[in-house]
Structure formats: structure tokens, C-alpha cells
Nucleic acid binder design. Structure first.
Lengths: 192, 192, 192, 192
DNA sequence: AATGAATGAGGGTTCATTCAT
DNA sequence: GATGAATGAACCCTCATTCAT
């Protein structure tokens, strides 16, 4: 990669990151191209040169964002941690970190651009799903999972926990009751 | 209430309902005052006469919306249904109804107008919370709730289920696995 | 017509006239909505309230313009002037007037908006053409027109003269040779 | 001319030709430097290196265009065709050819850049005018031209015909009535 | 000389809000 | 109180032009 392309790629990354930050903080609609340009230290037109339109920028930012999330998850799933530890990290994720931010961007995007985002669909079906299923097998083997529950239901259950914990308006309430939530996760309302 | 005030009140209700419909369908940002005015069959200025600004309208629509939700929940909680039935209805709520619509409005609002919505706070603390706690007592008495779990944790757990089920991008996946989800709710990942 | 509609109609006329003036002076592309707004003493948005888009404004200005031209021509054609006088006025039209302006607007429009301007087509076929043909009959009767020439050819010939005389870059050359051009018009290059 | 200059000259020609093509097809205003660069297979900056600004490019394209036209006309005028044949070709020119294109470029240019186009003025006065006058002499000698008509008037008359026939919105109507138009040209409305 | 990248200035358009009847 | 008309501010986007290699 020569000097041109290198600097170019850096700028593109800077724009994506700036846009993602702002989108997560203020929502997709409220963020203007001018603000993104300022945050990324480029001119507005440079953004158009790379991304053609705001809609298109949003789409690319979303892929950028999903890629980032997925890299983390993948690494975690493929690690040789015991099942229980993986699970806790999946559920609570970054909740315990200080710089936690809203995941509203995901919903904003899904709402307005859901149609035709084959990218996510593909990533999910071809990469994520197999890893999760394998992960559940591990859980069943280690006796953590009720064998009468289907993969679909577990996945749903897991993502519900994970996503709800990430919601910015909720995260602060989690910490004091994390232990209880873990208990609820494994044994339900009734307890063991 | 005389004829004037009555008609006036009807117009206000019409505006609130129109705004709520549109907000839920398209999101708060995308809906314009002009569109609300058209939907409610009033002029834009009439909206300003009643609500002063869009921000204020949003706030009032939110209260209108929360009131509606809460009336339903209250009725349910105060009914003499058995604990288990109440619970199922709380969790799955309108999910089973055909005309289910996005609850994104709630999150939109919480994101941008969270500060100073003392109305909801008050309603919650003074009205909702007591009823829920009473409800949990009923549950514990009937043996449905692990007595070592705090009210706070149960409430969190319950709302997570409820809100996640309502998410428009999720609702359609719920139906085929509703039984399994109920099971998970009561007995957790591990099962009984 | 009440006060509202009256003022409204006046503003619309003012916008049309301002736009026409500027379009003729500078060409359609070069004139901005802001300039039209300033010239017409209204805000930009008012123009959008009336005309929805610049493209649409251009279309309406064109009709406004064509209507104006046609009213003049119609009056002339329906007057009881002798054939020869009518003809001279048709050909030289406003050329002799001091405030003559470019007819480039017509060509600008025809170039970019020709498709679907059914309005002009209709006006031409239903109103203008019959009057012109009648006018040619008068000319033939009075012995001014070679009876072997078709209506189509005469019309073409006439419009060529008329339009060319109106061209702003040409108009100034016309005056000194107007008599000769009249002669050429009636007797051609060869003369009588 | 060495290899460098030669290749350089070729690029300049390519730019001029590409610009001319696009200007004629879409009008001067609507064509962007980027489009010209793409059509000519050079970078935008190369265009600036050669032409300094869009305005200047337009001026040079216009000279390029006028030169082309004039070479044809000169060749025609200097040929030893009989007067009548020359005339027909001057008037109808490329009208009969299949790939006829709009001459709007000429008017676009004249409108916005008329001042200071000393190049055309000079070409016209020093080269074109003398040849035309000589051509008219030939016509008078052969009895085709009314001897009481001045050179100025004939020139005007001739150019009117020529330019009007070239107008893209008119050209298609010419063919069916070409004979009649020729007749009108020589004998006028009254006929012989 | 030639180019990919970057930009300031401006254009069309939208929207929450105010004016005038 | 209610409305049609009007508006300032801001947004997305384009384009001629310059920078840096």
C-alpha cells in the first residue's frame, strides 16, 4: 500500500469512527455531516468523496460497527474459557466498563435501513450462528443448559439479556444486582 | 365542562393521538408538525396554541402514552387473576395481538428527554412500584418466586422480558418459542 | 375572492414575474431561488409553498410566459388590421421597443423541459394554429401569399423570422435593415 | 514538434473535443469539469493545467468550435460549385445528416461570454466577411440576388436561415418542407 | 507534467416556528 | 380560538478549484 492509499484509508477510518461515536451519542438523525466532518478533521466534501451520501455513510458505519462487535464476540467464543465465564462476559459485556455507551445506534439503523442489509444477515448466518450453536453444545455437555430447550430459544434468551444490559438507560441499575441477575439467568424466577 | 372546553379537549386528544401514532410508526425525529396537523385535522398553529413547541408536544405525548400503558397494567395487576396468568400477560402483553406496533417511541423519548420527566418518575414511584411489589408478594406466597431474590432484581428481570418482547424487530420471533421462553423465565437456563 | 386569496394571488404573480425577468436576463440555470425570492420580496420558503420545487417553478413560469405572449399575438391576429400590417407586427414584434429582452428563456426551457409540456402543445394546436391558418387565408385572399405554398411552410417561415428577430444578440442589427428584410420576406433573395 | 509536445497537444485536443461534445449535448452550465475529465480520460487538474479555469476552457472550446465550423464553410465557399448549390448547402448544412446535434452551445456562449470574444470578431471581419461578400457578388452576377439588397441584409437573411435550420427543436420539421423553404428563400412569401 | 485527494462557497430544500387575519 | 401564509435557520449535497505527491 503506497502513501496515498495509506493516508486515504486512515481518513476513511477516522470518518467511520467519528460518525459511529456521534451516532451512538446523539442518534443517527440528529448528527449532521458537518459535525462528523469536524469530529474527523476533514471537510464535508471528503465524506461525500468516500461515502457518496449520508444514507450510504450510515450503512457503512453500521457494518464497521457490527464488524467491531463481532470481532470481540468471536474472540471470546473461540477462547478456551469455561462455559460459565464465557456466558457472564457475553451477558454483561462492557457493562462493567466505565465508557459504556448507548447501543441505540443499532436500533436506529435496524428501524430505517433494515431492508437489504444482507451484510449483517450473511455475517450472522454464516459466521455467528455456527459459533453460538457450538457454544451451546459446550454448555449442554457441561450441564449448564436444560437439554429440552432449543437453540433458537437459548439464543433469544441470551441476546435479550445481552442487549438489555447494554441499554444506556438501564446499565447503571445492573451493577448492584448483577449477582441476582446471574442467578435468575441460570435458575429463573423460581430459583433452584 | 362546557361545550367550548369539551370541543377544545377533543382537539387536544386528537392531536395527542395523531402524534403518538406517527411517532410510533416513524420515530420522533422524522415526524413533522405539519404531518401531525394533517393527521389530526387541525392547523399547525393550533398545535402551537395547545403545546407551545414540538419538544413540549413530545413530552405531553409521552405522558399520554405512559398513562395509557399504565392504565392497562394497573387494571391487570389489580385484577384477581392467578399470579401465573398475570405474569404471562405482563410479559407477552400485546405481542400476541395482530396490530402490534413498535415501542421505539419509548426509547426515543428516554434518550433525548430523559432529564426532567418527573412525571413518569412520580407515577412510577407512587403508583406502579407499590402495585408491583404487592404483586411480587402474591407471587412469593404462591410459591412462584425464589424468596432470596430482591424486589429490585425481579422488577428488572420482569421489565427486561416485557420490553424485549415488545421490540418490533423481535416480536415476530417470539411466537414460535413462547412456551420455551416461559419455561426459561421460571426455571432459567438450567431448567428444573 | 377574499383578502387572503387576493394577497396570495398577488404574491404568486409577483414571484412568477420576478422569476421570468431573471430567467430571461440570466438564463434558467444561473438564477437561484434566493435571487428570485429577493426580487419578489418574499422568503425562499414562500416560493416553495407555492411551487414546490425549482423545476416546477420553471414550468409554471414558462406557462405564464407563453400565456403572455399568446395573449398579445391573439389580440393582434383577431384585430381588423390589414394583412400586411399584421404581418409586420408579428415579425418585428417588440423588436422596436426599447426594453427588448432575450427570448433565450424559451430555448432554455424547450431544451430541458420539452418532454411533457402538454400545456404549450395544447394551446398551440387548439388555439394558435387555427388562428394562424385563418390568417393565412386572409393573406391568400388579399394576394400576399403564393398559393402554392402550404400552411406548414408558411408557419415555419413566419416563425423563423419572428423568433430570429427576437434573439437578443441579433435585435440591434435588425433596425437599420428592417425595410430590406421586409422586402426579402415578401420577395425573397431574387426580388421582384 | 517533439514527442512531449505532441502528446501534450493530443491531450489538449482530447479535452477540447470532449468538452465540446458535452457542451453541445447538455449545455454549458450543466457540464462539470469532472465529467469533461472523465470523457477525455485525464484528471481534472490536467484540465486546469491547460486551461486555468472553466471560463477559460469555455472560451477556448468556443474558438475550437468556431474554427471547425469555419473550415467547413470556407472550403464550401472557395469551392467552384455553382452559386445555387453553395447556397443550399450553407442553408441546410448538416440538417440532412443523421448525427445532427444542437447548436445551442453557440447561443449559450454568446449570451454569457459575448464581451471580449475578439477572436470570433476578428475571424469574422478579416476572413469570413470578405469571402461572403465575394460569394454574394457571384450570386448577383449569376442573377440570383436582387441587386437592390445590401450585403448586410443578405448576410442577415442567410444566417437567419442557416441558424434556424440548425436549431435542434426545429430540424426535424425542415425535411418535409425543404423544397418549399428553398422556394420561399428565393422568391419570398409572394412567390414568383 | 500529471494525478488522487481535499476543500470553500454556494444551491435547493425542509422544518419548527411566528405573523396577520 | 383557529387558520393560511410566511419565514430564518439549518441540512444535504455539488462544483469549481487547490493541495500534496
Amino acid at each position: 500500500m503506497n502513501g496515498f492509499k495509506k493516508r486515504s484509508e486512515q481518513k476513511k477510518q477516522a470518518i467511520l469512527q467519528a460518525a459511529l461515536d456521534l451516532f451512538q451519542q446523539f442518534g443517527v438523525q440528529k448528527v449532521t455531516i458537518a459535525e462528523i466532518a469536524k469530529e474527523a478533521n476533514v471537510s464535508q466534501v471528503t465524506i461525500y468523496n468516500y461515502f457518496e451520501s449520508k444514507d450510504n455513510l450510515i450503512r457503512e458505519v453500521f457494518q464497521f460497527y457490527v464488524d467491531g462487535i463481532w470481532q470481540e464476540q468471536k474472540q471470546l467464543l473461540q477462547s478456551d474459557l469455561p462455559f460459565h465465564d464465557k456466558l457472564e462476559r457475553i451477558i454483561f459485556g462492557k457493562t462493567f466498563e466505565a465508557n459504556h455507551i448507548s447501543e441505540r445506534f443499532f436500533e436506529d439503523f435496524m428501524k430505517d435501513y433494515a431492508s437489504g442489509n444482507s451484510y449483517v444477515e450473511k455475517l450472522y448466518v454464516e459466521e455467528a450462528l455456527p459459533l453460538y450453536i457450538e457454544f451451546f453444545q459446550q454448555g449442554r455437555k457441561e450441564g449448564f443448559i436444560d437439554p429440552t430447550i432449543s437453540d433458537e430459544a437459548i439464543l433469544f434468551y441470551l441476546q435479550m439479556f445481552r442487549e438489555y444490559m447494554q441499554r444506556s438507560d438501564v446499565a447503571e441499575k445492573v451493577l448492584p444486582i448483577a449477582d441476582e441477575l446471574t442467578k435468575l439467568f441460570f435458575y429463573g424466577l423460581r430459583g433452584k
